[in-house]
Design a protein around this nucleic acid. Sequence first.
DNA 1: CTTTGGCACTCGCGACTGCTGAGTGCCAGG
DNA 2: CCTGGCACTCAGCAGTCGCGAGTGCCAAAG
Lengths: 338, 338
Amino acid sequence: MLSERRLEVLRAIVQDYVGTEEPVGSKALTERHRLGVSPATVRNDMAALEEEGFIAQPHTSAGRIPTDKGYRLFVDRLAGVKPLSTPERRAIQNFLDGAVDLDDVVGRTVRLLAQLTRQVAVVQYPSLTRSTVRHVELLSLAPARVMLVLITDTGRVEQRMIDCPAPIGEISLADLRARLNSRVVGRRFTDVPQLVADLAESFEQEDRGTVSTVLATLLETLVEETEERLMIGGTANLTRFGHDFPLTIRPVLEALEEQVVLLKLLGEAKDSGMTVRIGHENAHEGLNSTSVVAVGYGSGDEAVAKLGVVGPTRMDYPGTMGAVRAVARYVGQILAES
Amino acid sequence: MLSERRLEVLRAIVQDYVGTEEPVGSKALTERHRLGVSPATVRNDMAALEEEGFIAQPHTSAGRIPTDKGYRLFVDRLAGVKPLSTPERRAIQNFLDGAVDLDDVVGRTVRLLAQLTRQVAVVQYPSLTRSTVRHVELLSLAPARVMLVLITDTGRVEQRMIDCPAPIGEISLADLRARLNSRVVGRRFTDVPQLVADLAESFEQEDRGTVSTVLATLLETLVEETEERLMIGGTANLTRFGHDFPLTIRPVLEALEEQVVLLKLLGEAKDSGMTVRIGHENAHEGLNSTSVVAVGYGSGDEAVAKLGVVGPTRMDYPGTMGAVRAVARYVGQILAES
DNA sequence: CTTTGGCACTCGCGACTGCTGAGTGCCAGG
DNA sequence: CCTGGCACTCAGCAGTCGCGAGTGCCAAAG
């Protein structure tokens, strides 16, 4: 097992490296941290840490830099989450309070996160999976054409065009609308299928085909739109990545363009609590030199979606984690209010 | 005025430079193009072209590269628009035909453009300015809470929550809905204000406040949502920019994150026909080393929005213009069908 | 007046060299 | 177990140098 002091040395190395972006040597360490021992001792500790795989030398006669494993240990045992300052909190609150609709909330959140962490921010739209139905509207646009509008409790609106097998009268449509709403409003998406299963039967023969079609479309919408959308921002921060640009940045940009990849990335994060994936812990190999900090957020106690940031493995973990957690909390509040 | 051959030399320089990304010298030119004259003659021509500001030397004893002015001349007089090959056209058609809704159309278009041109693609959502109202829906969510849903002929749906000054009955609401629709359906956004101006007066005293609020919100939505949204993609292609990365790419990424900047950029493009803005012709200085190729597209003969690409000034103009034009055309078709 | 070959000149770039200093590992003594 | 000392390593920087691509100018030819 590693002694207390060796862990302290590792912590110092991570902190210095994150600050300076340069390999850190034994002498510099003793000068910038009150370790109470000499460089020589630190060298021995460093040798041990390297032996265990927590740090590495880019080349002989250079200082050490933390490995993914080193960061992992740092995050798990050596660092806390650095809370934001009061002014920062107030700024977040003010900024988010100005949002007018869901799109705006997500947009602002992305910009906020990117600015606070100076990294790439990813925010998932509140998922429909755990949402409840606020209202279902049916509009007759043409004799045999109906538009279905679905409004969720998270403020999201989805619409579908439906071509009916037969024309349906305004009265029947109003009837369907009323019955549909009385059954599903306030209910969870997952519960809707059984709730409407027998609805078609109660209609006149001539309208049954149309009713079935409408119901089918509704269920389809529920399922399809469960696949989440997301928004990203702060890609300009990628330029602070490293010095060997094209090679580092390219795969990251490519990964960020693939929504599927990002959704999987966020999906891999734990449902509750903060998840930090470091370097090669990320499945997607374009992101092997990045770390992802993600957390769930929601209007209530339950998470309805996730948000997070993507940055270089060499990042300020406590600060980033603090910012991510704070933003998630405030977004949750905003959603609860609206 | 420049002689025919000198223009030919300029064309050759642009083509070679775009291909090789390296300054092109007189000898190489005569070898790769059948100019029918010796390097010495070409040197004289190059000196003249440089005198006029069409080409420049990065440093003494290097070849020449085109200036913005040189590219301008090339685009205006020396190059045509290179049509796509039949397989390419078919691929576009197939890819776009798979789209299920407006979001999907725009999303696919962005990816398509980015892939075809290997540059950053920007696609504006069909504007509401020239759209007409397909339907307005009012939903009572709570006694004094109404949701306004606006559906446009381009398939877009906008919603707003309205807190009413006083509760409004279902009957009055239905009445309002009916009257509102009878007046505005099929009309252009710009015409709506006068069409509904006197609507509040025809209601009972007790409902007037609410009716006014609803109408105000509707007008607000029309104005606000006239500001367009857009989607971008292909940022990974930025890595092919130049060799001096951070400096070149950073401002571009920043500009791309600012939707306002991009909207202005597209807004500057001519309403009809293709617009090419080269280097410093772009107002935003972050984009001074990029060129923008933009074109309007629409379901009918009139353009409802624009799309285009952003790339290095050193780009294959004929090819890019061909791709942009073709994509715009097909997207127009798709929109017309739906 | 235009074209052409010749020629001297410029200068960026890559290869090579030597030096410096940060950093290391090891060891012997406290 | 800690520490100071010492020899060793090596990346990075600055300086030097030769090459070669490319130029501008000129005088002769078309």
